[in-house]
Amino acid sequence: MKIRTLEYFVREVFLSLKRNNWMSVASVGTVAVSLFIFGMFLMLVLNMNKMAESLESQVQINVYLEEGTTSSEIRSLEAELNDMQGVEKVTFVSKDEAMERFKERLGDQSSILDALDDTNPLPDGFEVMITQPELVETAAKNIEQHKHVESAKYGQDVMEHLFDITRLIRFFGLVLMLFLAGATLFIISNTIRLTVFARRKEIAIMKYVGATDWFIRWPFMMEGMVLGLFGGILANIILRFGYSALVSEIYSALAFFPLIPEQPFLNYISIVVVFGGMAIGAMGSTISLKRFLEV
């Protein structure tokens, strides 16, 4: 494209935006809102993913000991477990502690334990944290080989549930984001449709005197892109401030909550929101122009 032509296009775009000033403001506003919601869900989905990942990676094996294992045997077993490859942390859970936890989990229904008459059928045990989820299965098998170990269980079911939940969130997040992208497309194409409609006679004249379809299309596409750009920038500013505020709020309350750190995360979000807005703007105007290019 020649510089001269580009100049002409840019002038056309800003003339048109000025001419439809309130329409332009309204559509920038609606585009900003819908890109904001889009960005919010994008952030939510990415954080969910990250959370699921960090949960997936905190994998724990529950080790149950044989009845009558002495405390010195327990200590030496603890040392052996600590030496194992891929083990991050070993915590001893005595049978009394296990009973306490069990009672806690039963809550209101803990009275059913009265039937046990103060005997405690739970064994002593360890909670073994493994560094990488892939190592869990072999680690559990190895632990079971040790003397005094009755069984070593890891939360296979829990992990599978977790995978299901992550998948679900990813899926719904994707559906929702597609929906919002569609809504943004609709808003922009409607705005452009109005400007195109207001200028349909002009478009016809341009065609009569020999403008190519692309020559007519470009200014409208650029107008859509500018609307998307401004909307995207607006949404992006709110998203950045919002996320920063949320991160500092959550860190002061829940220090170990695994949120994605602001940088460079926010930059990626900005790129997606702003360029996404522009792309959708260009697409929106192409859609609304199609009909009017046929004289």
Partner: peptide
């Protein structure tokens, strides 16, 4: 092509309505 038609309208034909 559509572009060639546009060029034809531009260069070879003048319209009055």
């Amino acid at each position: 092509s559509d572009d060639e038609l546009a060029r034809t309208r531009n260069q070879q034909i003048g319209f009055v309505f």
